[in-house]
């Protein structure tokens, strides 16, 4: 029976083949059968976690608390130099040019990516806007968020800064960046469930990926420069931080 690996559903669709290549390489390297079990959204992911269907996961920071504290997952590695920052955008044609121009009752386009939405709401607090003061327009992905803002269906949108930066100039020209978070400590991480074997070896294998040109290419296909070790205390710090940011 193979172990199951899943990827947080906020991964870029164009990286899907990279994750399959990574998995093929990893299975051979650690001589362990692993099946990729992708989920469509964070609700499906939550169900999979509940049902103990996951053994290995590249997780969003908002899911790490539950995985570590409730499901006894162990943090293994995190990508170097990759951080989850959030940007709030309005339409370039909108009167809204700063966060303080916003008022309760606004329509906000957002995906279901939890850390982006958490940070987005925090950045609205200076304008006295809380979750109960907004009308949410749920979007499947970040480009749909941008479209909703550009066509005026939403007053503002919450985007992952990396996703915004990869938009074409045509899209960016139609958006106005109101604010970008500079938190520097939120990031995804790879975690292993309690039943996954030889986790120390797995961690070492991952940490040495950038030392071989062949495995460097696999990392590049995931848009990861290299992995760095993540220990339990670092995970606990991230969890504590997310706890301070969670809605009251």
């Amino acid at each position: 029976m193979p172990f199951n690996m899943t990827i947080s559903p906020d991964f870029k669709p164009e990286l899907i083949s990279g994750w399959y290549i990574f998995n093929t390489w990893l299975q051979k390297k650690i001589d362990t059968p692993i099946h990729i079990d992708l989920v469509n959204d964070f609700i499906e992911l939550s169900d999979a976690i509940d049902q103990n269907r996951i053994d290995l996961i590249y997780a969003n920071p908002c899911d790490i608390a539950r995985l570590v504290r409730e499901k006894n997952f162990n943090p293994l590695v995190q990508p170097v130099g990759t951080q989850d920052e959030t940007i709030i955008v309005s339409s370039v044609n909108s009167q809204v040019k700063t966060i303080e121009d916003l008022s309760p009752g606004i329509k906000v386009a957002m995906t279901d990516v939890p850390d982006v939405n958490t940070i987005g709401m925090i950045m609205l607090e200076p304008a006295d806007i809380t979750p109960k003061d907004i009308e949410t327009i749920h979007c499947q992905n970040f480009i749909t968020v941008a479209k909703n803002v550009i066509n005026g269906q939403a007053d503002i949108g919450f985007l992952l800064a990396d996703a915004y930066n990869e938009f074409s100039n045509l899209v960016k020209k139609q958006l106005h960046s109101l604010i970008t978070s500079k938190i520097h400590v939120l990031h995804h991480a790879l975690l292993a469930g309690p039943d996954f074997p030889n986790q120390e070896n797995l961690q070492q294998v991952l940490l040495s990926m950038n030392e071989d040109p062949k495995t460097q290419k696999i990392l590049q296909s995931l848009e990861i420069e290299k992995w760095q070790a993540m220990d339990r205390e670092e995970a606990e710090f991230l969890i504590d931080l997310m706890d301070t940011l969670s809605p009251e």
Partner: peptide, 24 residues
């Protein structure tokens, strides 16, 4: 926001996070 940091059920430290406040 200040939270107690719990490890194995015991409080071992505190984390404080400060963010931009509402003008009102």
């Amino acid at each position: 926001t200040v939270i107690p940091n719990r490890r194995n059920g015991e409080i071992v430290s505190y984390t404080s996070v400060r963010r931009k406040p509402s003008v009102k």
